[in-house]
Amino acid sequence: MRISPANTQRIMVVALWTLAAMTVFTLLFILGYVLYHGLPHVTWSFLTESPRRMGKEGGIFPMIVGTAMVAGLAVLIAGPIGVATAIYLTEYTREGKITAIIRFGADCLAGIPSIIFGLFGFVFFVITLGMGLSVMAGALTLAIMVLPTIIRTSEEAIRAVPRSFSDVSMGLGATRWQTVTRVVLRSASPGIVTGIVLSIGRCISETAALMLTAGSALRMPHSALDSCRTLALHFYTLMREGISPAHAWATASVLIVVILLINLVAYWLMRRFVARTV
């Protein structure tokens, strides 16, 4: 028996909406589950104390500091490099062999899994450059990892600035550099910042690469050459070794709340950017 087109339409619409609904439900379930099991254990002392007995007791303050240091440093390194690359690709050259090669490099880098970044960071930063398992080694590894994202989002943001703005600026006697810094970047900044904010999110979520480069010390990192354990890795350790499910989910909910905030900021920035360029 053949199903009539009208019925196929009905069936497919129902099926597709079911898929979409299940996806959204999955998200809500994950968020709900983590927050439900974790938030009750998130107290002021949990956020501000050091862990005791491997994290069974005490808090996660050193992990919060470590995560902030690693993510902050990574973006501090990758941000300028990524934006400069985007500026070069859009304002300082013509499309050609060189841009194709640079884009190829960024595209390939974007596809490399984080465990490979971890291996590389371990052999290069930790061992060859002698940094040891440290905040710095982790941050440098993550910087390379998020570089392609920052390049791509910055490039898109810069391309969204009308070419005529550059014409006008140069026509008024600006050098190219003045034009880029005072006109183009100024207009593109919400888009660029969105990319950077999302990169911070990625750094905070990362585990595999940091396990091999930043280590898992429970101590408070006092300098960039100290080892540190990030929130995501702390959660993993507590969970996997069954140290304390309550503290594990509490750590996860701190992580999830931060990620939610980051996405909200990015979403808000992006809307502002779109509203301004249209």
């Binding site: 400069a84 640079i102 490979i116 390049i151």
Partner: peptide
């Protein structure tokens, strides 16, 4: 400035090369 930017723009590619080499 263009040359400096070009040099910086190659960092993604050189990272890729470094990663490949070391792995």
């Amino acid at each position: 400035i263009g040359w400096v930017l070009l040099a910086v723009a190659f960092s993604a590619l050189s990272s890729l090369a470094l990663i490949t080499t070391f792995i």
